[in-house]
Design a protein around this nucleic acid. Sequence first.
DNA 1: AGATATTTCCATCAACTGATGGAATCATGT
DNA 2: ACATGATTCCATCAGTTGATGGAAATATCT
Lengths: 207, 207
Amino acid sequence: MASRLEKALQNPDSMKARILTAARRLFGANGYSDTTTRMIAAEVGIDVSTLHYHWGEKQDLYAGVLAAINEEILAKFKEVERRCRGVNLRRRLEIAIDLMCDYLFSHPEVANLILFGYFRKADRDVVLDVNIAHYISNIAIAMGLATDAGQVSVQAKARILAVWNSVLNFISGESFFRPMMDIDPSSYQDVVKETLKFILVPAFTTD
Amino acid sequence: MASRLEKALQNPDSMKARILTAARRLFGANGYSDTTTRMIAAEVGIDVSTLHYHWGEKQDLYAGVLAAINEEILAKFKEVERRCRGVNLRRRLEIAIDLMCDYLFSHPEVANLILFGYFRKADRDVVLDVNIAHYISNIAIAMGLATDAGQVSVQAKARILAVWNSVLNFISGESFFRPMMDIDPSSYQDVVKETLKFILVPAFTTD
DNA sequence: AGATATTTCCATCAACTGATGGAATCATGT
DNA sequence: ACATGATTCCATCAGTTGATGGAAATATCT
């Protein structure tokens, strides 16, 4: 019966969930094309056919990974929104930067997967994009750049995207940037947060 | 004789140069793994073996592409440096943003190829990175964030990287961002420049 | 225990990819 | 015209990849 298979993801020890975890890590580390179904199966310690039994095509598994991180990000954004309520804009920006950096530094594959999505052609067979568009308006409102979800200006959207991109890039590019700064991982996280605040806070708070 | 083959790149009509041009476009559009040597050969209208005759392994051709854009970027940075001389910091930032945006919008594959490089594992067989690290110090000096090439602080480097990343992301992510802003390509370029200036100028000019 | 359904693995397939050898073609210099 | 070297294409190879059929193993239920 299918119901059992659908609920399998709830249990992290289930085979379907274990495959998803391995796929998420490897897709995030290598991208879609440089990750083979055999690599994922090997990481779990199973045969490729078992992977296909649980997830069908490779594209379906990838879509499953994106759906999972999509939920995670949405939850994180809601947390940001909640924690931002009632504080001034400067603090709101600092909270958002700290929370998103902490989350992404502990889940670096998420940043990679989102950025990988930027490159994928729109005319591809399957739509695999993380639905970022929907969040943008919410953040713009949470940050006080707009009041109504339907009334977010192009400028406001662009500014949110710029912030969002900066965070993602510093996380995804760590292996590239950190050596040229010659600092340890912990310091890197601090420098990233500090830099983001240095750049973003004045832009949004100066009148 | 080898000298003829080495000089072949000077002439844009030479087979070696034509292959390089096609490779640059396709690698930039699809990434390394999703671009086959047959795709590149087909774009030029030749057989795969002719491609290998001129460039050897696929990795060598990719390295050739990166070397070419590396030179281009270096020249562009020098132009920025030259045009920035003698003007105040605010104008310097605006000049840098305008020049780099114009360049990258007319060569979008460059932004893609640099960002693709961020994801490539450091332990891979061949080093294929565009040498960004070297430019960072130069820009920091040109922007007045440091005076001596050896004395660029971690903070200054991080701030330059943040700027650089923002530009790259807006270019590479156009097909992703523009639909959600619902504007035409020309407006997109304007919004990007405007947003970058909005965010970056206050950060570096407020005292 | 025995029947049934689910899960896993082995063997295998067709398509694709990077790469090469060698024949055929073309260009160049004498 | 001829010889020499450079260039191009055709045929082909071995390795990898996504995917499947079917046997074997395991779990579930009565």
